[in-house]
Simulated scan of single mutants.
Amino acid sequence: MKKLRYFFETLLIESAAWIMPRLPRWLILALSRGIGSIAYLADKRGRTTALENLRCAFGDRYTLKERQHIARGSYQVFARTFFDLFWSSKLTAETWQKHFDIRLHDEQAEQQAREKGGVWVTPHFGNFEFLSLTWGYRGLPYTVVAQNFKNPGLTPIFNRLRSHSGQTVIAQESAILKLMKLLKRGGFVGMLVDLNIEPGRTSAAIQCFGLWTSVPTLHVQLTQRLGLAIIPSICLPLPDGRYEVSTLADIHPKPGDDIQGLTQRAWDHFETVIREHPECWMWMYKHWRYRPVGVPGVPHPDYPLYSNYSQALKDMIPEALSPK
């Protein structure tokens, strides 16, 4: 039964990969808005998570109706990201520029990264898939880490779509060693840095919208060890169907710098942008699975209802900032 389901899933995705590039741009955008709205209404669990996240992140800044509008917009932006990944095979080295506005915070920082290597980081904001696509066309082909699908037929399809402009996609197994070797050779790496992971040696406790959370530190550890730059980047969807791709202020970790402080600093760049465009972040994701305060098993009023008490997260917080 599973093999039959996998067969039809693969057939559906392969068909979408063939059809999408042949559709007009206005239809891709219309489908994104429509399917995103339907997903918002149909996905009760994700919708509840999104509204709860917005409540905790912004407090009384937005009314319930406004939070619902932002959450629906988040579904629409994610749908557009998904559809555009399939549509992107239509782009070529000659045509891609008319769909993107490039804004570099510091051209010298990028030039140094071209010469020495570097790590570009982004959250699940806007079209996070298109950052590697754009930089690939600009002569900076990323290597990105992606989790393999349970359906083995889907992995090569998505890897093909994600490597359209010269990128390389590697599996999570032994990824750290592969990335280290690549960066030592002056390569380019792209990473998502807003994943909520279990508190431990590979994570740091940072404040995200005033709430503590546990996120990966691999981007900091790699650049700190190799003397490279972290370049925060975003891909903002524009109403006319194009994208604005920007780099933010780069970060240069030094050997003695505090990993938690550097991780927080990188996140702070993104939070500023998310506050300006809240509909572009993936609010349906559980960003605060762990909380450092309250009684175990009892949700703290400032944290989402799905959060669970974590002594490990509390122990990771700098003593001067630890919640009482």
Rank of each mutant, 00 (worst) to 15 (best):
Q111P: 02
L218Q: 07
P199T: 05
K254E: 14
T122L: 12
L54I: 09
K181Y: 09
L133Q: 07
L41P: 01
A171F: 01
G187V: 08
L12I: 11
A312Q: 13
A171P: 01
L54F: 05
Q76R: 08
E110L: 15
T272M: 11
H219E: 10
P152M: 04
S310F: 03
F83A: 07
L211W: 07
T48H: 14
E9L: 09
W120M: 15
H269Y: 04
H124G: 01
I70R: 01
F270L: 06
I102E: 03
L248G: 04
N127S: 13
A146H: 01
N308D: 10
L195P: 00
F58Y: 15
F100H: 06
F128Q: 00
P156N: 05
S174G: 11
D106V: 02
M180P: 00
Q167C: 14
P255C: 10
G73A: 07
R33E: 12
Y137W: 15
P292N: 02
A109L: 08
V77C: 07
R45N: 12
T223V: 07
S246R: 15
S15P: 03
L262R: 11
I19C: 06
S307H: 06
H124E: 02
Q108K: 14
K3M: 12
V121E: 03
T95P: 00
H219I: 06
E279W: 00
I274C: 00
S203H: 02
M284H: 05
V293R: 10
C235G: 04
V145G: 01
L179Q: 10
Q207E: 15
W267T: 02
K44A: 12
